[in-house]
């Protein structure tokens, strides 16, 4: 009897240990994918593919265990409250995107504050670019998405090539039509279900957990009521993208420190999908942040 209890206990701790290990591997993988895009030489494809496959393996395992991995078939899987929390999540592997996304969204949320007529347009293309970056990075099958949603604009932004984790060239036959879509973001913000569904189905293909989370994230932002809440108090009026040229590398997006801290706090109780919660502790360092931001800014400004 005692033995059985003991064994049960051991099994429990084993399981705990296992999930802990899996968690740390997940975090390490996210970090690796994030940092590999920062190098000035093309990242090693073999390494990237092996890391991706490891992530896929873990995601598959999570799925089998019944952990809610968000997929296209259940776009409504996120209850609204969870959505709110999700929106605060800085995903380690793509947090440069997250920040920009947040900032650009912030930009749009406070659109009324912005006097210059040009600014919203800039924000539009940025946001679209970032939201769709994972898709244009890795796929040419993003075509349906591109055609149906506003993300086509993304392809007009060179961001696609340079943040490309797999070191591939984005296939961009839609480049020309992209620029014709001007009020893209508005559409993105209003046509909530459409974009979230498409993004989700895309990431479903891709099967990468980080992206799945990103996709669920994006489905959250598209609902204006939720975006208002965490970001309503952030004034993005002063955030002109021209400020963030490579010449001023120390300029940070105002939104960055606020979000990360908030996010880390609000998100710490979400244990299931957290590539982030531990990733934030273990991987983040300010120097890296700066470099990363600088890098992205270069890409954005250089476009």
């Amino acid at each position: 009897m005692l033995g059985r209890v003991k064994r049960k206990h051991e099994e429990d701790t084993d399981l705990e240990c296992y999930t802990h290990q899996r968690q740390s591997i997940l975090n390490i993988s996210m970090c690796k994918l994030r940092t590999s895009s920062l190098r000035r030489v093309e990242p090693c494809l073999r390494r990237s593919v092996l890391i991706f496959n490891t992530l896929k393996f873990i995601e598959e395992e999570l799925r089998q265990e019944g952990v809610k991995v968000y997929d296209a078939s259940k776009p409504s899987i996120l209850p609204s409250i969870q959505c709110e929390e999700m929106a605060l999540d800085p995903i380690p592997c793509q947090d440069h995107m997250t920040h920009l996304e947040l900032s650009s969204i912030g930009n749009n949320v406070n659109k009324t504050d912005i006097e210059e007529p040009k600014t919203p347009n800039v924000a539009v293309s940025d946001t679209a670019a970032i939201v769709s970056t994972p898709s244009s990075d890795n796929s040419s099958s993003a075509a349906p998405l591109i055609l149906t949603t506003t993300s086509a604009i993304a392809l007009s932004v060179p961001v696609t090539g340079s943040t490309d984790i797999l070191g591939t060239h984005a296939v961009t036959p839609q480049r020309n039509i992209a620029s014709t879509i001007e009020n893209g973001l508005d559409k993105l913000l209003t046509v909530e279900s459409l974009s979230s569904l498409n993004l989700n189905s895309l990431f479903e293909d891709e099967n990468i957990i980080g992206s799945s989370i990103l996709s669920s994230l994006s489905s959250c932002w598209t609902s204006p009521s939720k975006v208002d809440d965490p970001l309503g108090d952030i004034d993005m009026a002063g955030c002109d993208f021209d400020l963030l040229s490579p010449a001023s590398p120390n300029v940070k997006l105002p939104v960055t420190p606020i979000t990360t801290d908030d996010l880390a706090r609000t998100f710490s109780n979400m244990d299931v999908l957290l590539p982030s919660s531990c990733g934030v502790d273990s991987c983040r360092n300010d120097l890296l942040w700066n470099d990363e931001l600088e890098n992205i800014m270069q890409v954005l400004v250089g476009m």
Partner: peptide, 12 residues
């Protein structure tokens, strides 16, 4: 692969 999303193997 025609679709780089499906890439899961490289030549070493």
């Amino acid at each position: 692969p025609a679709n780089m999303e499906e890439l899961n193997e490289v030549i070493t």
